[in-house]
């Protein structure tokens, strides 16, 4: 299965991935309407420190702790992609307590949102990858160890 991987030395820390993600998942056709003047809840985040930056999104673990820990049955896997049924999520945030990578966030509805590799929006393939100006984020198959 293809996943998103990050090459930290190529990351410029520009945060474009965050904007592209929020836009892709907004369901709106206008980027301005989707992003301007409101808080956004991207599913990828640029983390880092003084010397390095990198984008972090769901790793789509092969044995995901978040799915095993979900108390509402909202988190599940679809063909390897860890997905969330927002309809079932009650915002208890247990997944945020167990994800070692900080890949889940609470959005404006109080429920949790996460990367679903753009399988649930009109992009079909990760918008963060397509829009990364320095190819620091890639979408490819790598073998499981």
């Amino acid at each position: 299965m293809k996943r998103v991987f990050v090459k930290e030395e190529w990351c410029l820390g520009c945060h474009l991935c965050e904007y592209n993600c929020a836009y892709a998942n907004s369901g709106l056709s206008s980027m301005v309407k989707a992003l301007q003047g409101k808080p956004i809840f991207p599913r990828i985040h640029v983390n880092g420190n003084d010397s390095v930056t990198f984008a972090v999104s769901c790793r789509h673990c092969t044995d995901p702790l978040c799915v095993k820990s979900c108390i509402s049955g909202a988190l599940h896997r679809e063909n390897g992609v860890v997905c969330i049924d927002k309809n079932k999520c009650v915002g208890c945030l247990t997944c945020m307590l167990v994800c070692p990578y900080g890949a889940l966030v609470q959005d404006e509805t109080g429920t949790v949102t996460k990367c679903e590799l753009c399988t649930k929006n009109s992009c079909g393939t990760p918008a963060c990858v397509a829009g990364c100006p320095n190819n620091a984020i890639v979408f490819e198959e790598r073998c499981e160890e």
């Binding site: 990050v6 090459k7 930290e8 790793r59 092969t62 044995d63 990578y101 073998c143 499981e144 160890e145």
Partner: peptide, 9 residues
Amino acid sequence: RKTLESVVK
């Protein structure tokens, strides 16, 4: 690096 560059369990 391991987390961001490879498939994790």
